[in-house]
Structures are given as structure tokens and as C-alpha cells.
């Protein structure tokens, strides 16, 4: 198994006033290609800080982070931007789609910042990504013409389009009702089955059983790292939920 993410004794300190806050106090784990991992923890457990570091938005104060074999610590802002562009797909709680912009253009966005991708290839790949999240006939809809679930699907397509090594979902279902949440979860499970590596940050313990691995943080440390024997299928759960009108 190829390791996509290797964390070794990651620490991250913030200076708030005169006081040093230790957000991460030595986090180590390895995530292999094709894993579907949840990272859970209460507020203040260091979840967001860890996610920022995993997403190359932030760098650790100490420790070694290898993303797809590349050490992240020794990099300029621009190099990290390029790494985000090629290796990481973000999914946010509030979708973060560009307003008044079509689904297709939103999905094309990461490729716009990649000079190696031509305009025609960009469009083709964006259409494939949108098809894979089931939005084939909504490509020309703008973000304000879509429901929350549809917008999150667009965001997922955007995270897929650059063939990223890892998809980072930050509370991806936090703004959605439970039925739509399970639909999104089912979509992520589909992607996982196709071999995608997904890290799902959430504080909802209901999603625990749908992934193959759970990492639980508390006070900036990993307190649990379990592999699930039995993985629930979100589609099955969907059938048990009451239909909405």
C-alpha cells in the first residue's frame, strides 16, 4: 500500500498575546491510498488546525509531513499553492461556490490555475466530474439556482476534477439536513470504492460506521485510531429514512 499522507510528531503552536497555545501536541499517523478516514473530535481538539496542515494551507511548527512523498515543511507559499492545486481537493461546509457562476465553471476553477490543462480538456474533465456526482443535466445552472445538496455535489466534483491524491472534506454535511447528508455520504462512499483517498472531518458520531477508519483527536493528540470491521452502506441507511415530500 502506498502512503498518501505520513504525519510524524506534528506540532503546531500559536502565539496568542504572550501565551503559547499548543493546538497540536505531536500527531502521528499514516493514511494509505484508497482509505476513507474520519477525523473526529470536540471543538478545540485541534481538528481544524490538523486539517489546515493536511491541506497545505498551514505548516507545522515541528514534525514531518509527507504528502504523496513530498515534504510540506520546506516550501514557499507559491509551491504549496501548486501542491494544493495538483494533490488536494477541498470540500467545505458552506460549499464555497463562486456566486452567479455555472456549475461547470465552478468545477473548472482548479484547472484554470493549472497551465498544463488546455481549455478543451478542462471542460471535458469538468463535465466528467459533474456526471460522476449525478449533475449531468445541471451543468449550466448557476449556484443560486441549486439546492444545498446540489451545491455540495458541485463542490465534490470540483474536488475530483484535478485527480487529487486526497480529498479533504471539512464538515461537508454540516449545513445539510440528515437525508441529504446521507446522500452526500453515499456519494463519498462511491468515490471511495473507485479508489479515492478521502479524509472526512466531522463531529457527527453517526458517520463513524460508514468509513473504514476513525481517528479521534483530543487536546491536540490522537486518542483513538480504529479500523472498522463492518462498514455500513449509506444507501441502505437512506432507505430507512422517511421520504421527504
Amino acid at each position: 500500500m502506498k502512503a498518501v499522507i505520513e504525519l510524524n510528531e506534528i506540532k503546531r503552536d500559536f502565539l496568542v498575546g504572550d501565551e503559547v497555545v499548543h493546538a497540536l501536541r505531536g500527531v502521528s499517523f499514516t493514511i494509505n491510498e484508497g482509505e476513507f478516514v474520519t477525523i473526529m473530535g470536540a471543538s478545540g481538539s485541534g481538528k481544524s488546525t490538523l486539517l489546515n496542515i493536511l491541506g497545505c494551507l498551514d505548516t507545522p511548527s515541528e514534525g514531518v509531513y509527507l504528502l504523496d512523498g513530498n515534504p510540506v515543511k520546506k516550501m514557499s507559499n507559491n509551491e504549496r499553492a501548486v501542491l494544493r492545486n495538483r494533490k488536494i481537493g477541498f470540500i467545505f461546509q458552506n460549499y464555497n461556490l463562486l456566486p452567479k457562476t455555472t456549475a461547470l465553471e465552478n468545477v473548472e476553477l482548479p484547472l484554470m490555475y493549472n497551465p498544463d490543462v488546455s481549455a478543451s480538456e478542462r471542460k471535458k474533465r469538468a463535465m466528467v466530474a459533474l456526471e460522476s456526482v449525478g449533475l449531468k443535466d445541471r451543468m449550466m445552472h448557476t449556484s443560486n439556482q441549486m439546492s444545498g445538496g446540489q451545491m455540495q455535489r458541485v463542490a465534490i466534483a470540483r474536488a475530483l476534477v484535478n485527480d487529487s491524491a486526497v480529498i479533504l472534506a471539512d464538515e461537508a454535511t454540516g449545513n445539510l439536513d440528515s437525508r441529504t447528508s446521507y446522500e452526500i455520504l453515499a456519494l463519498l462512499q462511491d468515490l471511495h470504492r473507485k479508489g479515492r483517498t478521502i479524509i472526512f472531518v466531522t463531529h457527527n458520531p453517526d458517520f463513524y460506521d460508514y468509513c473504514d477508519r476513525n481517528i479521534i483527536l483530543r487536546d491536540g493528540k490522537v486518542v483513538e485510531d480504529n479500523r472498522n470491521k463492518v462498514i455500513k452502506d449509506a444507501r441502505e441507511t437512506l432507505k430507512t429514512l422517511p421520504e421527504e415530500d
Binding site: G55, N77, N85, F90, Y113
Partner: peptide, 10 residues
């Protein structure tokens, strides 16, 4: 912020 997170440099 979004543009930067999907890979836009400064």
C-alpha cells in the same frame, strides 16, 4: 480564500 485553496498563488 477559495481560489487560494484550489491552488491560486498570490
Amino acid at each position: 480564500g477559495l481560489r487560494m485553496s484550489v491552488g491560486a498563488r498570490s
